[in-house]
Structures are given as C-alpha cells and as structure tokens.
Design a protein around this nucleic acid. Sequence first.
DNA 1: CTTGACTCTATAGCCGCTATAGGCATTACG
DNA 2: CGTAATGCCTATAGCGGCTATAGAGTCAAG
Lengths: 162, 162
Amino acid sequence: MGIKIGKLAEMSGCQVVTIRYYEKEGLLPVPDRSQNNYRLYSENDVERLHFIRRCRMHGMNLAEIRQLLAFKDNPTVSCDWINSLVEKHIAEVERQIAALRHLKSHLQALLRQCPGGRHEGCGIIATLTECGDCPCCGSSCSLHKAEGTPAHGSSKSPEAAK
Amino acid sequence: MGIKIGKLAEMSGCQVVTIRYYEKEGLLPVPDRSQNNYRLYSENDVERLHFIRRCRMHGMNLAEIRQLLAFKDNPTVSCDWINSLVEKHIAEVERQIAALRHLKSHLQALLRQCPGGRHEGCGIIATLTECGDCPCCGSSCSLHKAEGTPAHGSSKSPEAAK
DNA sequence: CTTGACTCTATAGCCGCTATAGGCATTACG
DNA sequence: CGTAATGCCTATAGCGGCTATAGAGTCAAG
C-alpha cells in the first residue's frame, strides 16, 4: 500500500499521464494522497488498472470499460450483455478485416499501374485521378463509398512498451 | 464553371464542411467567389477533390495526399517514391490485418469463458481481471504489449453516403 | 412576406491519449 | 551545505480528420 504513480505506471505498462487521464475520466477512483500531495495507490488500484488496460487491448473504448467496471463493482444483473458486447466487437473486427483485405487488393492493383522509374505519367497518379470504375472491382466497389476503413497511415508506431 | 459548394459536395460524395476543411488545409486551392461571397468551383476542382477522396479511401492521410498533389501538379522527379508509399501502405494494412485477426481470436477466447445467462461470476470479467498469461497465446502474446490495434469500438458507423 | 434551402464565418467537440510549461519535493552526490 | 537529477504536481494545448453548433446573410418558391 502506498504505490506512487510512477511505480503503478511501470507495473501496468502505461504512462503516468494516462493514469491521471483515467482518473479524470472516472475509470480509476480518486486516490489517497501522501502528505506531499503525491497520489498513493493500493493493490486494488493495480488490479483495476490492469483490467482497464486489458480491456483496451481487446478493443474496448472507455465508455464500454466504464460499463464493465460498473458491472464488476456491482454485478446485480445478468452478464448476457457482456457476451453481446464481445460478439459485437468480433463482428466489428471481422468487418474491419474484410475492409482492410479489400483495401489491400486495391493497393496492390495500384502498384501494378506503375512499373516505377518513370519520370512522368505515373500510373498510380493516373489511376487515382481517373473517374471511371476502379480496376479492381468495378463501379459497385465499396471503396467508392465512404467506408469505415481505419486510417492506417496515421497510426502511431507501436514503439513497444519499453 | 461556377459550381457551388453544395453541388461539389454532392458530386464528390463528401460533406460541405469537409471541402472547406480541405481548403483550409491547403489541399484545395482558394476558390473564386460569387458576388454574394459563395465559393465557386471549376471542373478542375471537381477532379482534384475526387483525387483527394480516392486517396483517402486508399488509406492515405492528408500529409501524404499533399505530397501526391504536389507531384501531380509538378511531376519533375521520378515517381518511385509513390510506389514505395503504396508498398508501405500495403505492409501497414497487412500488419493491421494480422493484429485484428489476433484480436479476434482473443475475443473469441473471451466468449468461451462465459456461457451467458449467469447472474454473477461472469467468466469474461474474470478473464479480463486475471493477471496470468492470456488463455489464447501465453505470456508472450502481443496483446499484452501496447500494439497499434485500431480502436474499432470507436469507429463511426459508416452511414453509407446517401 | 414568410418559409425553407443554401451559403458564410468562427468556434468547440470527438477519442485516447501525448506534449509542453512551470513549479514543488525528494534524493544522490560532492 | 549547495546543486543537479529525478519524480511528482497542475493546467492547457495539440494530434487527425473531420463533425457539430451558433448566428447571420442570400435567394427562390409559395
């Protein structure tokens, strides 16, 4: 008892600022303070933070984690909704995998448009400029509509937790 | 010539605000204005916006699109870097697919922990609480580290463009 | 003449953090 | 004892790619 925030961060593999953020978001309880105003955590908090981190890695967002924590703290109703939640996530993951596979085939088709080394008339630019149906799957291709494809280009480098 | 922003939005399948946003970001040129201060676009702008949208659907971020547009406007150098860019995206997409597949197996494992209908001792909660190795792949499982898994839970519903 | 559809600007919010600035507390070393 | 390196504190702003809201001007139809 009396774990400081840096130690907790180390134990849970997340950042100090993230812990304070979770506190602000109401996922972690307001902790005791030492006489010099440092946050002091207990073993309970360690477990709770681990739970939160594990949920995050399973793709849960903070609102869902809040619900799960509320249930965990006070499991008065059936947990069927948790099964449904997980099923919903599985379906969403499957949707994303399908979208990414589709995207991949598009990108591969793009690559074939340009053999490289050329100084003008890049086939990739040309293909991206064309208004016609896509060479991969025609006018009904879902890439022609706004689809919930994750913007992989903007994902941070993992930088594996030290 | 003289396409108003609403029409352009309709033609390109994106929102009016998004067009203004692209202008602010320097992807679309500052357009002419009608005498009542409405933006007026040309066929060139239509093509440019289509190009941008198509790039977005291929997972390019705005910085990358800026580069592609600069090249398109003034293709003085070799386009090899565009091939590399697309290859980089393919690799990233593959990484995400692998991560999502892994995540899916985790979620499915979670589902098996709880047959449902029970009023306490939910197996999913218990599994997420446990500190031990994950039931799917042991302590070395990448889900135990911070991995660049897209937060599918927070993705907006596609709401397919009208 | 009012209603409704469209346009304009400016600002704030979304998510889950991450970064920065400025300051206090503790500890190690000389 | 001084001082430098940590670690902790608060508060605020920024990331990406939009989306939402507020408040106001413009225009055509009924």
